[in-house]
Design a binder for these strands. Sequence first.
DNA 1: CGTCCACGTCTAC
DNA 2: TAGACCTGGACGG
Length: 383
Amino acid sequence: MPEGPELHLASLFVNRVCKGVVFTGDVEKSEVSKCPEVPFACEAYHISAKSRGKEVMLTLTPIKCEGAAGRAKAGLVQPMNVVFRFGMSGYFRFTPAEELPKHAHLRFYTNEKPRRALSFVDARRFGSWQPNGTWQPDRGPCTMSEYQSFRDNVLSHLSDRAFDKPICETLLNQKYFNGIGNYLRAEILHRLDIPPFVNARSVLERLQSKELSELDNKSASEKREVKSEGPDLLSLCHTVPLEVVQLGKVYDPEKADYSYFKGWVQCYSVDGMKSVRDHNGRTIWFKGDPGPLAPKDSKSPKGKKRIKKEGGDYTENKKLPKKKQARVTKKDVKQEKRVKKEKETQDEMRPKRGRQRKQEVVQTQTGTRTLRRRVTRRSARDS
DNA sequence: CGTCCACGTCTAC
DNA sequence: TAGACCTGGACGG
C-alpha cells in the first residue's frame, strides 16, 4: 500500500465513499492498538480527506442541522483533523459495521440503517494517527502536490548533511522527499540510469546549476531549451508517483488486485534486476552499476572473501570483537544466520544473497518465473 | 514446522 | 546505526 501514491489514492477513496454520508457517535479504537483515542463524538458529521506525501489528514466536520437547537448542537463540537501515517500496511476500507475487516484499528460509523464503518486497517500496526493532528513538521513538501516547493526545498539545502549519502538513501529522507518510498526510489533512479550508490549532492548539484541558468536566461527559447533536456531526478519524483496515482483510478482494496502495479513497475523487485541492502538495511533494486558508495562488506559473500584473501584476517579481526557475547539480540541472530549462509555459498558466482540466489537457480532450471512474491516483466505481459 | 521478507518510521545506546 | 515495533505470505525442509 503505502508510499505517496497510495496515501493519495486513500484520500481519494475516502472522499468518494464518504461523500454525502453522515457519520455519528464515538470514534472507536481497537483494544489492541496503542494509538491514542480520538475524542470526537458528534451526532452528525461528515468526513473528508487530503494527503501530503506519506500522510493523510481526515477532517471530521459537524453538520449544522436545521433549527436553532441543531445549530447550537453542531456549534458545540469543533471540527477535528486526524492525521494518519500508514506504516507498512495501513489503508482505509468502508464496509458494513457488522463486517469489520481484520485489523480495523480505528472505526468511524455512519448513521445508516444497517450501519457502515470507515476503518483504518493496519495489520502490522506500524501506522499511527494523531487526533487534532497537523502535518508532521519535519516532513518536506509533497513531491506530487507541492512540486515547486519540494524542488526548491531540495535545491536550496544541498549543503545539508542529508545529501552526504548515496542518492538511494537520501531519497528516503522524508524531510526532503516526502512521499518517496522503497519502490519509488528504485523506479525513479532506474528511469535515469542513475547508480543508486552515487553521492546525492553530486547528482543534485547538476540540477541546481541548471536551475540557475534558467533564471539567468530570460529568453523563452532558452528556457525551452533547458526544458527540452527532459526529465531530471526531481521532476521524476513528481511524475513517477503521479503515474501510479493514474493507474489506481479505482482504488478498491476489496479486489486486492495488483496486476496494474506489476504491469507498471520496471525495476523494483523485478526479475533480472539486482538488489543489495543499503546502509539502513533496506533493499535497493537497480540495474547495472551499483555506484561507488555501495556497501562493500556483508552484502556480497564474494566481496567478503576477497577482502579476506587480500588483507589477511585484518578485517575479520576488526569485525569480530564488535560482537557482544552477553546479549543475544534479534539482529545478532539474523546476522549469524546471514554469515552462515554466506559461508555456505561463498564459492558461488552470483553476488546476491542466499534466498534470491536459490530462487534464481530454480528459475533458470525450470524456465518459469517466480510466483507472486517477486514481480516479473513476464507476468506483466501475461496479465 | 521454521526462516526470511515486506510499500516505514521512531528512539535509545 | 542498530534495534524495536508487528502480522502474514512465500518458501524450504
